[in-house]
Design a protein around this nucleic acid. Structure first.
Lengths: 197, 197
DNA sequence: AGCTCCATACCGACCGGTTAGTCTGCCGAG
DNA sequence: CTCGGCAGACTAACCGGTCGGTATGGAGCT
């Protein structure tokens, strides 16, 4: 067992990351002190600065984890063997579901980007761009095939949809009337309906 | 002349508000010190605390200004004498244009809500809710008349559209290829296309 | 016209409190 | 004996907000 765990069996770095995620989402990055993070994780500052270089590093880790997950899932849906309208719909719905499943991550993502150091900000933006472009490629593919309207530039269509995803952390409440899957279906529907030729 | 102005002729309170708006949008509320604000406005702390009760007050003023403007414009469009699809379209496009025209306000609005004191937060949420409901009423009206699809709950439609408005401050750049009006037309188009029965 | 008086507008040194990050050293495992 | 893993006291830098003081212009009286 050793010193990397307490009674819970979860290693210290992960406990710190989990505590930071929750607190960043709750109070925001600046309003969360490292003291609060280490207390929530049941350790002290020594432990935090043993594993992470700075408070900023912690935030970056949250971003890296989210981006990795979303990119993997998007790639899987985009590479599937199905008509493009089906692949886009599945991808659009999936990002809604996974975003709702990780609403804390989403709040942090969209509210705290500007707290990253310039280099980390650059790195995150680059990865987001890759994600955006993969998604856009799906729209463009459908437009070339004639199954999607070309009235709106693909870039704008992607931003339109991700605006709504972004917005989820503002209004979605787990105790509301709609399940994550229902919301996802509706939002994917709206996207596909807007794209009808 | 007197002491309420410097060479620019703009009164001190407005200079403070303008400086705060720019800085809050640039670096975020917490990363902006009152010292920086007063320096940008060309005064000292004494002046700031003479006109405003707290730093928080300054933020609240920004919100109040934005909310008032948007609500007035929405009411004007919603009350117009025209078919509902036209009124919704105009309102949807207008909020995009005015948001782009005040991108700083928009960044602050969506990124710094949680920095407001509980009471002010409550007040802002209440006004936003009124705005949301006015917009939703337009969608519902069209749905009742049969000119809009009822496949998606009106609430979700409104959140879908405002997600994209919210998102503008993330990606829109004045030096990009699209004018504010062009973006507005496209986004309003997407909304109306998604609502076709 | 001149003088007094006071409200308004603003200055800037100062205070209590908080923060991210550092550093020394202990402890248990191998 | 050594070394990763961590504890926790410490520091230097700020930060929001306060407060006594100063300058200015106009109202009221004579």
């Amino acid at each position: 067992m050793a010193r990397t765990t307490d009674g819970s069996g979860i290693p210290v770095p992960q406990r710190l990351l989990a505590a930071a995620t929750r607190l960043f989402a709750e109070r925001g990055y600046d309003r969360t002190s490292v003291q609060e993070i280490v207390e929530a994780a049941g350790v002290t500052k020594g432990a935090l600065y043993h594993y992470f270089g700075s408070k900023d590093d912690l935030l970056h880790e949250v971003y890296a984890r989210v981006l990795r997950l979303q990119q993997e899932r998007l790639d899987a849906f985009a590479d599937a063997d199905a008509p493009v309208e089906r692949r886009l719909r599945d991808a659009a719905a999936d990002v809604v579901v996974t975003t709702i499943d990780n609403l804390d991550d989403a709040s942090i993502f969209f509210r705290s980007m500007h707290h990253l150091s310039p280099e980390k900000d650059k790195q995150v933006r680059a990865e987001r761009r890759r994600y955006h472009e993969r998604f856009r490629a799906l729209v463009e593919e459908g437009q070339r095939e004639g199954v999607f309207s070309t009235a709106t530039p693909a870039d704008l269509v992607v931003d339109y949809h991700f605006g709504s995803v972004h917005h989820l952390s503002t209004w979605y409440r787990p105790d509301g009337p709609l399940t994550p899957q229902q919301v996802a279906d509706h939002l994917a529907d709206l996207l596909l309906r807007a794209l009808r030729p």
